[in-house]
Simulated scan of single mutants.
Amino acid sequence: MQETYYAATYWPARQGSVQSCAVQSERLFQSLSRCDTSFSHWFRQGKTRAAALSQAFPTDVAGLVTLFDEQTREEGRRQTDGFSADVWNGQSDEDSSSLSFRMGGASSRLPEFCLLSPPEQGPTAERLLRAPTLAQVLRAMVRAFEPEWGLATSHAHRDLVSDSAAPGTFIGWLTYFSHRRGPLPALPPSVHLEPVDTLGTLLVLTPERFTATRPDHLALAQDVSSRLQQAGLLSPLRP
C-alpha cells in the first residue's frame, strides 16, 4: 500500500486580532510559494472542481483581513473562536495539495494548527516528499505561526506509534521542537539537526524518505523517541 504523508505544526491557542492573523497567514503563503511552484495559487474548497476554481483564495493581507472579518460576522460565532481556512492548490488530482489552518482563538481545549496534505504520488509528490522540501515547508509554518511542535511523516507511521495522535507526544520523519519545550538530549549521530532561526530545532531522522515498512527506520525512530521521552520533550501541548 502507498504510504501517504502530511506536514503539520501545532501550538496552544493564542488569541489574535484580524490584522495580526492576516499578516501571519500572508507570511505563510509567501513562504510556501517559494517551496514549490504548486503552492503558488490557492482556492476555496468547493463541491466540484469547477466551483472551487471559481473561488480564488486571497493570500495577501488585505484579502485575508476581509475574509477574517467575514468570519467574525458569521451567525453564532464568538469573538474568541479565531480564524480558519481550508484551501486547495487547484492542481490536477495527481498534483493536488490541500492546506488547513486554525489560529487566533482562545480555547483552552483545542490547539491551533497548520496542516498540509501533499499529493500521494506522481512528479509533484516526488518533489515534495523529500527531506529538504518538507524541511522548507515546516520552516515556513514555524516562521509564520511560531508553533510549539510540528512534524512531517506518514499516516502509517503516526498510527503505528500513537493511539491518539495527540500533538507533541510522538515524532515523525521530521520533527520540530520549539525552544520553549526545552533542550534536546544527545541523539544518534545519523540524526540531522537544523536550527530554525532562534525559534527552535528541526530534527530529521533520515535523508531518504522515511517509511513505516523499513525496520531500520522504525528502530531509529524508537531510539530517538525514547531519548526525547526521557528528556521530557514528548508531552501534550498545554496552554
Rank of each mutant, 00 (worst) to 15 (best):
E94F: 04
A166T: 15
T198D: 15
R34W: 11
P188C: 08
V161G: 02
E70Y: 12
S100C: 15
A152H: 06
A152K: 01
F101E: 06
G82S: 09
R44V: 08
P215D: 15
P119G: 02
P167C: 08
R181Q: 11
M103L: 13
L233Q: 07
Y5A: 06
L28R: 03
S154N: 11
P132L: 01
L67H: 05
L99C: 02
R127V: 01
E75K: 13
P195F: 10
S154I: 09
V204H: 09
D216C: 06
A144H: 07
R14Q: 15
P167F: 05
L237K: 04
V224K: 07
T124L: 06
M141I: 03
L233R: 09
R214A: 09
Q15F: 07
Q71A: 04
S178L: 02
D163H: 12
D81Y: 01
T206N: 13
S178Y: 08
Q19Y: 13
Q30P: 02
G76W: 09
T198K: 10
G122F: 05
P207N: 08
S100V: 14
Q222G: 13
A85G: 10
K47E: 11
R158S: 15
V23P: 00
Q121M: 08
S17L: 07
T124A: 01
T169C: 11
F39V: 00
F170S: 10
R49W: 04
A135H: 09
Q91G: 07
S154H: 12
H157I: 04
G172M: 01
G232H: 08
V161P: 07
F39T: 01
L218P: 06
L233C: 07
L128N: 02
R14G: 11
A8I: 05
A231F: 07
S98E: 11
E148S: 15
F113C: 07
S31M: 04
L184P: 02
L151C: 14
H157C: 08
A8M: 08
D159I: 05
S100E: 14
Q24I: 02
F83S: 00
S25K: 00
A50W: 03
Q121L: 10
R34Q: 15
Q79R: 10
S107Y: 11
Q229K: 12
L203E: 05
E75T: 13
C35V: 15
R34P: 05
Q229S: 09
S226E: 14
R143Q: 13
A140V: 00
E94N: 03
G200C: 03
C114M: 02
L115I: 12
L193H: 06
L160C: 07
A166G: 12
R158W: 11
Q30D: 11
P215K: 07
A165G: 14
P167A: 09
Q229V: 00
Q79Y: 09
S154Y: 13
L28K: 02
A125Q: 10
G168I: 02
L184G: 01
L218K: 01
S54G: 13
S97Q: 07
Q30R: 14
Q24T: 03
F101S: 06
S108A: 15
L110R: 14
Q45C: 12
A152W: 06
H192K: 10
A186R: 11
G63L: 11
E112G: 09
L116E: 02
Q30S: 13
S20N: 01
L174M: 06
R34L: 11
R127E: 11
L184V: 03
E126P: 05
T66M: 12
E70A: 12
S92I: 13
S31G: 09
F57N: 00
A13L: 06
